[in-house]
C-alpha cells in the first residue's frame, strides 16, 4: 500500500510539472500576442510597407507595444496597416505620433516604429489613423548629393574665371580697395570662402573616414557597399567633392594674393569703382557660394541620418562629448 501511495505521489508531481510547463508556455506565447491584456486598435496608411506581415511587432520609442493585425490595400497607392496596441500604452501615445516602417536589425523582421510627436496634442483614441512617414532611401539621397556637386563644380569654374579676370586687371582692383563698403564686403566674402573651404575639408575628411570604415568593416553593410552601384556613386561623388574643394581653395589663395597685392600697391585704381557689372558679378558669385555651402551642409546632415552611416556619426558625437568632458 505504501508503495502505491508513493507511486501516486510521484505520478502526480510528474503530471503537474508537465501541465504547469505547458500552461506557462501557452501563457508566454499568448502574452506576446497580447491575448491576455486589454488592447485597442489604431491604424496608419503607407505607400509601401516593404514586406511587413501580420504579427510583426509595433514599437513605440523602441518598446514592443503591440502587433500588426491586418494589412489591406485601400486604393492603388495606399496600404492600411491596422495595429493592436496594449491599452496601458494609450496615455503615452499622442495624436501627432508618426508611424514608420523599419527593420529589426539588418536581416531582421520588419517592424512598425511609432515615433512620438513633438507637441502636446491629445491622447490617441481607439480607431485613430496616425500619420505615416516613408523614409528617403539612400538612393534618393545620393542623387540630390550629386546634383549639388555638379552645381558646386559649375560655381568653382565661374569663380576661377572671376579670379583670373581679377588677376589680369590689376589696375581695376585698386579702386575697389579704397572703397570701404566694397572692401568690407570683400573681406566678408573672403572670410566666408575660408569658412566654406574649412567646412568642405572637414566634410571631405569625415566622408573619407566613413568610406574607409565601411570598407574595412566586415559587416553586411560593408559588403553591400563594396559590391553595389551605390558604392560606385559615392566614390564618384567623393572625387567630385575633392575636385571642388581644391578649386575653392585655389580661388581663395588667388583672392588672397590679389588682396595682398592691392594692399601693397602704390597706384590707385579708380575706375574699378565705376565698373558696376564687376561688383554685381562678385556679389552673385558670393550668393552662389553661400547656397552651395548650405546645400552641402544639408547633404551632410542627410547622410548623417542614413542608416548606413548613422552609427559612425553617433560614434563621432560620443567621442566629441567625451573630449568635451575631459
Amino acid at each position: 500500500m505504501k508503495k502505491t501511495h508513493n507511486q501516486k505521489l510521484k505520478l502526480g508531481v510528474f503530471v503537474v510539472i508537465g501541465l504547469i510547463l505547458f500552461v506557462v508556455a501557452v501563457y508566454l506565447i499568448g502574452n506576446r500576442q497580447n491575448m491576455f491584456v486589454k488592447t485597442f486598435n489604431i491604424s496608419a496608411n503607407f505607400n509601401n510597407v516593404n514586406g511587413l506581415m501580420q504579427g510583426n511587432n509595433v514599437r513605440y520609442s523602441g518598446i514592443n507595444i503591440g502587433t500588426v493585425k491586418t494589412i489591406s490595400m485601400i486604393n492603388d497607392s495606399t496600404i492600411n496597416v491596422d495595429m493592436v496596441i496594449e491599452e496601458k500604452m494609450v496615455q503615452h501615445i499622442k495624436k501627432d505620433a508618426i508611424a514608420t516602417i523599419g527593420t529589426d536589425g539588418l536581416v531582421g523582421n520588419m517592424i512598425v516604429n511609432i515615433i512620438p510627436g513633438k507637441g502636446d496634442s491629445e491622447m490617441i483614441a481607439p480607431g485613430d489613423v496616425i500619420q505615416s512617414y516613408t523614409k528617403i532611401g539612400t538612393d534618393e539621397m545620393l542623387n540630390t548629393l550629386n546634383v549639388t556637386n555638379e552645381n558646386a563644380a559649375l560655381l568653382t569654374a565661374k569663380l576661377l574665371n572671376i579670379a583670373d579676370a581679377m588677376a589680369d586687371s590689376k589696375g581695376t582692383f585698386g579702386m575697389l580697395i579704397n572703397d570701404t563698403v566694397v572692401s568690407s564686403n570683400l573681406k566678408q566674402t573672403v572670410n566666408q570662402l575660408r569658412i566654406m573651404s574649412i567646412e568642405a575639408n572637414k566634410s571631405m575628411k569625415s566622408l573619407n573616414t566613413i568610406i574607409n570604415t565601411i570598407n574595412f568593416q566586415e559587416s553586411v553593410a560593408g559588403v553591400l557597399l563594396n559590391d553595389s552601384i551605390e558604392a560606385q556613386k559615392i566614390r564618384v561623388l567623393l572625387t567630385n567633392l575633392e575636385a571642388t574643394t581644391a578649386g575653392v581653395n585655389s580661388v581663395i589663395s588667388n583672392l588672397n594674393e590679389t588682396i595682398e597685392d592691392y594692399k601693397n600697391s602704390k597706384g590707385a585704381v579708380n575706375y574699378l569703382f565705376n565698373d558696376e557689372e564687376f561688383v554685381k558679378n562678385l556679389e552673385q558669385s558670393l550668393i552662389n557660394i553661400n547656397e552651395g555651402t548650405n546645400k552641402f551642409n544639408q547633404n551632410m546632415e542627410a547622410l548623417k541620418h542614413s542608416f548606413l552611416t548613422r552609427r559612425y556619426f553617433r560614434k563621432l558625437e560620443k567621442q566629441q562629448k567625451k573630449k568635451a568632458k575631459s
Binding site: 502505491t4 507511486q7 501516486k8 510521484k10 505520478l11 510528474f14 503530471v15
Partner: peptide
C-alpha cells in the same frame, strides 16, 4: 482506475 494509475507510473515516470 488503480491499474490505470499504476500503468501511468510505469509508462510515464519510469520513462522520464
Amino acid at each position: 482506475f488503480n491499474e490505470f494509475l499504476k500503468q501511468c507510473f510505469q509508462v510515464g515516470n519510469r520513462s522520464f
